[in-house]
């Protein structure tokens, strides 16, 4: 059995003359918290819609749990819980009745499961109120309650902290690792870089309908980080490094040598220098944030 919970290959979606998604490949391994990162209109929500069967790809395929979505959509999607964009519910029903309605469509959780889900998002006290009278934060909480109602294996959350106050945001951020610890796979769509950096262990960065980078969060951040090297003889050290694979990424400043993208390569650099009799006085990775990496990759400031 495949260990990929989501496997999207060559996805393309076009609306009229506008290409929303172009050749997107997304793979999410079991048990991961996967972040889909990108500015508004970058194609991440369209990709999520195709993964959830809400939109049909013009080209490409989607597999969930190792099986093609197109052929077994109903069966596969019952193992998924999702909140797409702002949570949508029947406005004249209460929060609890909305969950009861979903439970009738896809039975399994029962009355206990409904109360458990409401409790988990701290919505028990407002569960009797009509959805149309909920604040945006309460709607988000209900959306998350609906997503986790049937104990799904895969949870897709699209901007789940939108409209939440700082405490609510923190609760959701705490909830995501908790859900992951229960063995669930989580896909989190967000344009909030620090949010993704805090909770996701893998990331795909979207720009203009394409995935421009994908991988483990640490790896991506490391790829964007620099290594500071300080030696007694910087000219000699630079000559050594110039001849290595780091030659194209060197800069000098205040007596230090900086190697771009080598934040994780301190050991290799140290070995190269020591082999030639140059011993580093300082060998310090300068870590970038996901935000730095994002801007470096996209080459544009992020809006929204």
């Amino acid at each position: 059995m495949s260990d990929l919970v989501v496997e999207a290959r060559g996805l393309k979606k076009q609306y009229g003359a506008t290409v929303a998604v172009q050749g997107v490949d997304v793979c999410v391994e079991r048990g991961r918290v996967f972040g889909a990162l990108g500015p508004n209109g970058s194609g991440k929500s369209t990709t999520v819609r195709m993964i959830l069967g809400l939109a049909r790809p013009d080209e490409g395929t989607v597999s969930l749990f190792g099986q093609p979505l197109r052929e077994r959509s109903a069966e596969l999607l019952r193992r998924v819980g999702a909140v797409v964009e702002t949570p949508a519910f029947v406005p004249y029903l209460s929060g609890r009745d909305n969950l009861r309605l979903l439970e009738k469509y896809t039975p399994g959780a029962g009355a206990e499961g409904i109360e458990r889900a409401l409790h988990r998002v701290h919505l028990e006290d407002a569960a009797h109120r009509r959805f149309k009278n909920y604040s945006l934060g309460m709607k988000q909480r209900l959306g998350i309650a609906a997503a986790i109602l049937n104990s799904p294996e895969l949870i897709v959350l699209d901007e789940p902290t939108n409209g939440l106050d700082p405490q609510g945001t923190r609760e959701v951020r705490d909830l995501i690792p908790e859900l992951a610890a229960e063995g669930r796979t989580i896909v989190l769509c967000s344009h909030l870089l620090h949010e993704v950096e805090q909770v996701c262990d893998a990331v795909a960065i979207f720009q203009r309908g394409r995935v421009i980078a994908q991988g483990a969060t640490k790896e991506l951040i490391g790829r964007g980080s620099r290594l500071e090297v300080k030696v007694a003889e910087p000219d000699a050290a630079q000559a050594i490094l110039d001849a290595s694979r780091f030659g194209h990424a060197l800069t000098r400043s205040n007596g230090s040598i900086y190697i771009d993208g080598a934040g994780n390569d301190g050991e290799e650099v140290n070995r190269l220098l020591a082999a030639e009799g140059q011993y580093a006085a300082i060998l310090r990775p300068i870590q970038h944030s996901l935000e730095d990496v994002f801007f470096e990759l996209t080459g544009e400031p992020q809006h929204g």
Binding site: L54, A82, A88, T106
Partner: peptide, 14 residues
């Protein structure tokens, strides 16, 4: 209008 059709079908309701 309420986008509830997407919520239901994305839960595996045929």
């Amino acid at each position: 209008d309420w986008r509830t059709v997407g919520v239901v079908t994305s839960r595996g309701v045929t």
